[in-house]
Amino acid sequence: MATLTAGSGLSLPCLVLLLLLGIPGAGAQEFQLLQPQGAVSVSAGETLTLLCSVTGNPPAGPTKWFKGSGPTRQLVYEEKGSFPRVTRVTNTDTDYSIRINDTRPEDAGTYRCVMFKKGLGGDEEIGSGAGTNVSVSARPSAPSVSGPPSRAEPGTPVNFTCTSGGFSPRDITVTWLKNGVPLPAPQTRVLPEHENVSYNVSSTVGLNLSAGDARSQLTCQIEHSALAAPLRGTYNLSHALRGQSLLSSPALWIGLVLEKMLTGAFLLFLFLRAPGLFPDVLARSPPATCSVCSLCPQPGDQPPDGGAAAPPAGLSHGAQA
């Protein structure tokens, strides 16, 4: 008769068979895969560290990292293969933590550390970590403000649009200001409307322009969790107003001519009252008291060589005798 072990309810041959088959719980040491991070938030461009370790005595086999779950899960890291942005933190048999460099919005998702054991038909999955949910915060781009395609007359309603993109998470606040004063009821839309790795925003505000808006400025202000301070884009409303043409305004012509005349008169006044301001001009000009006649020889003048004075022009030799 076979002898039964105390309290087991199994005969000795049965226990031996279980040990030979390697059935879990029959003498094999247990192991536990630890993934302590429930959720991690990182800014785009930073380095993300995902923790995973094993305790106990796991069977021989690789440990891999996956993003997502099910048949569509994406392999993130394993010892074999090339993963340029992913590296092991330490190269030990108990720590399987990894680093992801230069994180991007598309890196957001749930990551799991999965252990395998070697089998005749390939690696067999035997354990998985609880999973770490990673969110990547990305800054919105600088806001760009655009006005109407053509200039408008004063009193005409005009729409202005502010756009920005590449941000995550989805929540964003857009505020319009005219000369620093908030404008009411802008129409703001964030796309895509479904969950995505990054988002774009477009906001539109309408204004009735007046002639005085030629000196006004419109500001689009964006606030987001990834920003330490709001981003602003500006638009000068003079670019949207249709101004008067110089040819169609005689008053502008007259003002321009008067300006040139006054400028010329002022320069002439300076020239006459302050000759020292224009030494080069005066050096090339004859003295104010000089005349053409004074440059000619006069009767009684001695020639430079001390000889007799030259006869006046027009006298013949006979007259001189």
Rank of each mutant, 00 (worst) to 15 (best):
D95W: 09
Q37W: 02
S144R: 11
D123E: 15
N57R: 11
E106A: 14
K64F: 13
K67D: 07
S97G: 09
E153L: 11
R112K: 10
A60G: 11
G121P: 05
S41K: 08
V40S: 13
D93R: 07
R104F: 11
S144M: 12
P36V: 01
N101V: 00
T92Q: 14
V40D: 13
D107W: 08
T92G: 13
R112D: 04
E153K: 07
G109I: 00
S141L: 05
G122T: 02
A130M: 09
V89C: 10
I100E: 01
M115W: 03
Q29I: 00
S82C: 00
V40A: 14
R85W: 04
G27N: 14
S146A: 08
T49W: 07
F116I: 00
T47D: 14
V42E: 15
K118H: 12
I126D: 02
L120D: 13
V89G: 11
S69Y: 09
Q29D: 13
A28W: 14
A28Q: 15
S43E: 08
A39M: 07
R99D: 07
T47R: 13
F83W: 12
T92I: 13
G27E: 14
A28T: 09
R85S: 03
L33N: 02
A60C: 00
R73T: 02
T87H: 12
